[in-house]
Amino acid sequence: KTYTFRVRIVDEETGEEKEIEVTAKSEEEAKKAAEELKKKYPNLKVELE
């Protein structure tokens, strides 16, 4: 079973919002993916929905 999570990304500089879908095998995995995004884009606000 896989879970699909919507991750909302807000670029703090431009105020631009993007939504991406993360497919993960567990909620834990999705959280890790969101953390990776935060590391990659430090000025983005990442929200897991």
Rank of each mutant, 00 (worst) to 15 (best):
K40N: 06
V10I: 13
A30M: 08
T14V: 01
E35T: 06
K45G: 03
N43E: 05
E12V: 12
T23C: 10
D11W: 04
T23H: 14
A34N: 02
E27V: 12
D11R: 01
A30V: 06
V10F: 13
K32G: 06
E21D: 06
L37D: 01
E29L: 05
E35Q: 11
E12T: 12
K38W: 09
A33N: 04
R6I: 15
S26C: 06
F5R: 00
A24K: 02
I9D: 00
K25H: 13
E21S: 10
E21F: 15
T2A: 06
I9N: 00
P42I: 03
T4A: 05
E35Y: 07
V46R: 00
E36V: 09
T2N: 11
V7G: 01
A30T: 01
L44D: 03
E29V: 03
S26E: 02
A24D: 01
T4L: 08
K45P: 03
I20S: 01
S26G: 05
L44F: 14
T2R: 10
E27T: 06
T14E: 01
L48G: 06
E47V: 15
E29T: 04
V22C: 13
K18S: 11
E13W: 07
I20F: 12
Y3S: 04
V46W: 11
R8G: 03
L44H: 14
K31I: 13
V46Y: 09
K1M: 08
K38P: 01
K25L: 12
F5E: 01
R8H: 11
S26K: 01
F5V: 10
K45E: 05
V10S: 06
D11H: 03
E35R: 06
E47H: 07
N43S: 08
I9S: 00
S26H: 04
E28S: 08
K1D: 11
G15C: 04
R8Q: 07
A30P: 00
S26I: 01
E35D: 10
G15P: 00
A34F: 15
E12A: 10
Y3A: 04
V22P: 00
E13Y: 09
V46S: 04
L37V: 05
K39I: 09
D11V: 04
A34H: 07
E12C: 14
T14A: 03
K18D: 05
K1E: 09
A34C: 14
V7R: 00
S26D: 10
I20T: 02
L48C: 12
E27R: 12
E28T: 06
E21Y: 15
E47Y: 15
A30I: 08
K32C: 09
E27Q: 09
K38I: 12
K1Q: 10
Y41N: 04
K18Q: 12
G15Q: 03
E36S: 07
K45S: 07
K38H: 06
E16V: 08
K39L: 11
K45L: 10
E29C: 11
V7Y: 10
T4E: 04
T4G: 04
R6P: 02
E21N: 06
K25R: 12
K45N: 09
E17F: 14
E13L: 12
K1S: 09
L48Y: 13
E16R: 05
Y3V: 06
K18T: 14
E27I: 14
E49N: 11
E17A: 09
L48D: 05
F5N: 00
A30D: 00
A33C: 15
K25I: 12
V7F: 14
T23R: 09
A30F: 11
K32L: 13
T2C: 14
L37R: 01
I9W: 14
K31N: 08
E49C: 08
A33V: 14
E28K: 08
K1W: 10
L48W: 15
E17R: 06
Y41W: 09
E49T: 13
E47I: 15
Y3I: 06
E36K: 07
G15W: 03
E35K: 05
A33M: 15
E19A: 08
K1Y: 10
E19M: 15
K1V: 10
E19D: 05
K45V: 10
K39T: 07
K18P: 00
A24T: 06
K40L: 12
I20M: 09
A24W: 05
A33Q: 10
F5I: 14
T4F: 07
K25F: 14
Y41D: 03
A24E: 03
L44C: 15
K1T: 11
R6L: 14
K25G: 13
T2S: 10
E28Y: 09
R6G: 02
E28D: 10
D11T: 02
T4P: 04
E36H: 07
K25P: 10
D11Q: 01
K38T: 07
E47P: 04
L48Q: 05
E47S: 11
E49R: 02
R6T: 15
N43T: 09
E35W: 09
V22D: 00
T2H: 10
K32I: 13
R6N: 06
N43F: 09
K40E: 07
E16K: 05
I20D: 00
E21V: 14
Y41C: 05
K31Y: 13
N43W: 11
E21P: 02
S26N: 10
K39D: 05
E12P: 15
E47K: 04
K18M: 14
V10T: 12
E29Q: 06
G15R: 02
